[in-house]
Nucleic acid binder design. Structure first.
Lengths: 394, 394
DNA sequence: CGGACTTTGTCCGGCGGGAGGCGGAAGGGG
DNA sequence: CCCCTTCCGCCTCCCGCCGGACAAAGTCCG
């Protein structure tokens, strides 16, 4: 039974206050095209609903000082970003400023009941930590395809036990607030749209390279889901006819070259054969090699691992070049790379795209690394749900 | 100074009447949520503006017979589809039913002044032919990238002299009605959306294989243009590292394998070397070979040309498989193929997509041939402008 | 053939919401 | 200390919309 706006005007005012922060009533009147009387009525209603509150007086503009209005300071949104091996939870105020952020390792394969309980526990800890307030909504990101309208995972490859589990409904019941669920890459894209480099861009792509390779698509400032919620699933686009076999059954998938598992496989080969002294040493030390070791090697300047990153970046770039020609975005953001090797990767991706895509599409196309990294997901999740709640939908 | 609706209600009524045809006032009242008095006022205003007119009485539903209302029968929209080598012009009524259609050869390289004059001439002939009526708008499709908001071609590769020519403004002046200009593939997609197989699909792709290879992208029932208007330009996506050189400067582009010029090139080689008896005979007969000869050969069952079509279809399919994974459309329409070889092509494209894309994306994905063919473009052009005019924008 | 019932369309009265004027409150500047 | 500016609450006027009443047109049944 959380409060929500009753009409378009109230929704517009809330979105304005969320985006621009506290504002004087006079300024609000200038921006929205409402008469003073109407504006006063709507603000009063919002205050009654507990969604906005007065916040002192503005500096004088030469006469009587105007009253400042802001989104109620007790408003809270929660963002939950569930990855393959970890959970991130954040609590924000109504302006989506992160008040607290916790991260914990978790195994998605433990199934929805256990993982979601763990997420709720983290959320409980955060809320106990002095940042209480009424929870007005929760956004959740999951590492697999999601049917957005229903809020359930659909045939997710790496999430055994989650298929068609009613995540949205279950969490809504438990938390007693509106909940929306989306793909983790999509919520990262929303994070970039809200707080990152995409703030002024309507159409862009966010490419996440991690365990898998995925792409968030933003069209007109909104996530594009596709008809079955699997849009952006670019990990299994074919790069080469005669490439390595991928768990998906095909050959030459992008992920079979440059996903987490593929990097680990190549690293192991290079370490065992002693082609890379760095990887061999790491292997001897830990007994295993992961994508992180490749990242560390690239940073340390190891030639073989650098070559692996360059090769992968080139392949990702080739796929993206095609997608840029097709989609003609205003921005491409690369995210999720193992920290530090981003710039090596970026250079390869850039050169591939600029070389292969049409000049008209690349003419004014920034290709950048995400600056938000681990908080993009949780911020995007709160953005997702706050868009929903502030638009007046339950 | 064409009439246009004054508010949302009038716009909704017009769109309803355009889509569903004439309707009784009583039925309209049931569909739109307006009181009877308000509905009467808005319909009166539309009638005053000359946009709708009474059309007799409906059958009784047990009491007084309701009056039927339809879009004014004198309303006319024009659709102009300018291709590389031809112009198609059609005139429709307000419900976008084609009243007359003319086609003429034309060379886009003659430049905008000559080609647009030729288009106006065709339009004049059609309008003189007893299908006169006030022209309420004209939609134009051009075979190259278009800046949609400005209505001007942007760096079009095959249209010398057209770069930044103010097509929209010039034609608006000459014709004295609102004009919108878009890419020819985009207007074909609109045609399919309006009158073709995509009527109930929100998100789909239309792939046109002709002189070039392009793709119209429809998101939420609207054409997606991309930030610089070049979205859907898939002809220069790379299929193979070591492919043939393309005029664009890169190697292995899709168009370098299966565009009109590439097919002609391969046909010539096969004809000269006598690998294909069919093509050799054609070559001897005409002195040249074009993509049409390849189509004819495939229909005649010539093995070499069939192989060329199959190869090309497979390559197109491979590119589309990636785009289907990325975009997750609800429908893929293949259009513009030389008549008759469509089914050979379709089989290859289908098998490539179903094999390479994710099951979630292909699960319920029809891949079909366009049934509209040459009229898709002109119908789409009228749809484009009528959407605009009926929405109340000048 | 006529009367009762149904449906449709128009007219009109009443109501609610929004715009704008007015005046009081609050502050700046001379 | 006075006057001007700005902001905001209150009040009134006006416009637009809804819904009911009524008239017109038709069907159905006795």
């Amino acid at each position: 039974m959380t409060a929500r706006p009753e009409n378009i005007h109230q929704a517009r005012l809330l979105l304005l206050l969320r985006g621009e922060g506290a504002r004087s009533r006079a300024e609000l009147g200038d921006v929205v095209r409402l008469s003073r009387s109407k504006l006063a009525v709507e603000l009063d209603r919002l205050a009654e609903l507990g969604l906005v509150e007065p916040a002192g007086l503005a500096a004088s503009r030469g006469g009587r000082r105007s009253g400042i209005v802001r989104i109620a300071s007790g408003l809270r949104f929660a963002g939950i970003d569930i990855g393959a091996t970890s959970i991130d939870v954040a609590v924000t105020n109504g302006e989506l400023e992160v008040l607290g952020h916790m991260s914990a390792p978790a195994d998605i394969r433990d199934g929805p009941a256990a993982v979601l309980a763990q997420a709720r526990e983290l959320l409980g800890k955060l809320r106990a930590r002095g940042i209480a307030g009424e929870l007005h909504g929760t956004g959740i990101g999951l590492p697999g395809p999601v049917s957005f309208p229903e809020g359930i995972p659909i045939a997710p490859p790496i999430m055994p036990g989650w298929d068609r589990y009613p995540v949205r409904e279950a969490m809504g019941q438990e938390l007693g607030c509106p909940v929306l669920v989306d793909n983790d890459v999509n919520i990262m894209a929303l994070g970039e749209l809200h707080a990152g480099l995409a703030r002024s861009v309507d159409d862009f792509l966010l490419v996440k390279i991690g365990t898998g390779i995925g792409c968030g698509i933003v069209v007109g400032g909104q996530i594009y889901h596709g008809v079955s919620g699997s849009a952006g699933d670019i990990g299994h686009i074919q790069v080469d006819d005669h490439g390595p076999v991928c768990p998906c059954g095909n050959t030459g998938c992008l992920e079979a070259y440059f996903g987490g598992a593929a990097l680990a496989r190549d690293a192991l080969a290079a370490g065992r054969s002693n082609r890379s002294a760095f990887l061999a040493a790491r292997l001897a030390e830990n007994g295993v090699l992961t994508a992180e070791d490749v990242g560390a090697g690239a940073i340390a300047g190891d030639a073989v691992t650098l070559g692996m990153v360059r090769d992968g970046g080139r392949r990702v770039g080739r796929v993206l070049a095609g997608l840029v020609s097709f989609f003609n975005p205003g921005l491409v953001i690369i995210a999720g790379g193992v920290a530090g090797l981003g710039h090596v990767l970026l250079a390869q991706v850039r050169s591939a795209i600029y070389q292969r895509s049409l000049p008209l599409a690349t003419g004014n196309l920034p290709i950048v690394l995400s600056e938000l990294e681990e908080s993009a997901g949780v911020i995007g999740a709160t953005r997702l749900i706050s868009d929903h709640v502030f638009a007046g939908r339950a």
